[in-house]
Simulated scan of single mutants.
Amino acid sequence: MQFSHSDAMWQAFPELRAGALHAGGIHADADVEAAIASFSAIAEARLAKAQEGEFPEIQAWRRGFSRMGLKPTQYRCASEALLRRFRQEHALPRLHPLIDLCNAISLAFAIPIAVFDTEKIAGDLEVRRAKGDETYLTFGGESEHPEANEVIFADSEDRAHARRWTNRQSGLSAVRATTRSVLIVAEALHVSAGDDIARLVETAADALARHWPATPKTAMLSFVSPRFEF
């Protein structure tokens, strides 16, 4: 399997920096509470100084959404949505240890992180513009079709595993108690995105290795090296 962004995406968003991680050995019994508390504290400290909308990481994604023709305050990147909820409630709901951990890392870095159950992905996964006939399964179990030219994560069977790029993942490949193998993707558009994504991927790989019997494989993606094989 491989993960990539289309050439057209790199050309349209040359400032994009992305990292990917694959790991097996995932289970739902890991105790990640200490790690979550540590990452949450970083977010708390930053939010005490400014709201998430002032973060350069979030502002860059808002500009990116505007360039995609989306209203940034209607459709938010995943990290902004998490930070907004965290600022209001000072906690996030617990879903699965891996998702809870990745959400906490996303809070700390203010960078969206997607986590996919690789067994639910058919063939390769590519971030590209939609044709409009792809299928997307909501978390409520309903089937939708992305709009033509919408940025999606599409597999080889034209199933969309995320809509509006970093806005919302699909229920089809969501991590569940039965998940054993995952693909984790982090993407950013801000000025220091390259360094920040590299730190995030290293942080995530270390956290996974400490909480699961996993030896994560990682990659930094670019226009000249756009594919991650795992």
Rank of each mutant, 00 (worst) to 15 (best):
A104T: 00
R94I: 06
A108L: 14
F109W: 04
E89D: 14
R84D: 14
H90T: 15
R94M: 07
P112C: 10
A114K: 12
D117W: 01
E89R: 14
A104Q: 00
E89M: 10
D100Q: 04
P93D: 07
D100G: 09
I99N: 06
V115Y: 03
L101W: 02
I105Y: 02
C102P: 08
H90Y: 12
A114T: 10
Q88C: 13
R85F: 13
R85D: 15
P112A: 06
D117F: 08
H96I: 05
L101V: 00
H90E: 15
S106E: 11
V115G: 09
A110D: 05
C102I: 01
A108K: 02
V115P: 07
P97Q: 01
I113K: 10
L92W: 00
I113L: 14
A91L: 10
I113W: 03
S106M: 08
S106D: 03
I99F: 00
R87T: 08
D100K: 02
D117N: 11
P97M: 05
A91C: 15
C102W: 01
Q88M: 13
H96G: 13
Q88H: 09
L98D: 03
F86R: 07
P112S: 07
D117S: 08
I99P: 03
R85W: 04
F109S: 13
A108M: 08
V115Q: 01
R84P: 06
F109C: 12
H90K: 15
Q88N: 14
A104S: 14
P97N: 01
I111T: 11
F86V: 13
A110W: 05
D117T: 05
Q88Y: 02
S106A: 10
R84V: 09
L101M: 12
L98M: 09
S106Y: 02
A108R: 04
A108S: 14
P112G: 07
F86G: 14
D100V: 02
Q88W: 10
C102A: 11
E89F: 09
R84G: 12
F86C: 03
R84H: 08
N103S: 15
A114R: 06
A91H: 10
L95H: 00
R94F: 03
A114N: 13
L92R: 03
L95D: 03
A91Q: 15
F109L: 15
D117A: 05
R85C: 07
L101G: 02
L98E: 06
I105D: 04
P97F: 00
A114H: 12
D100P: 07
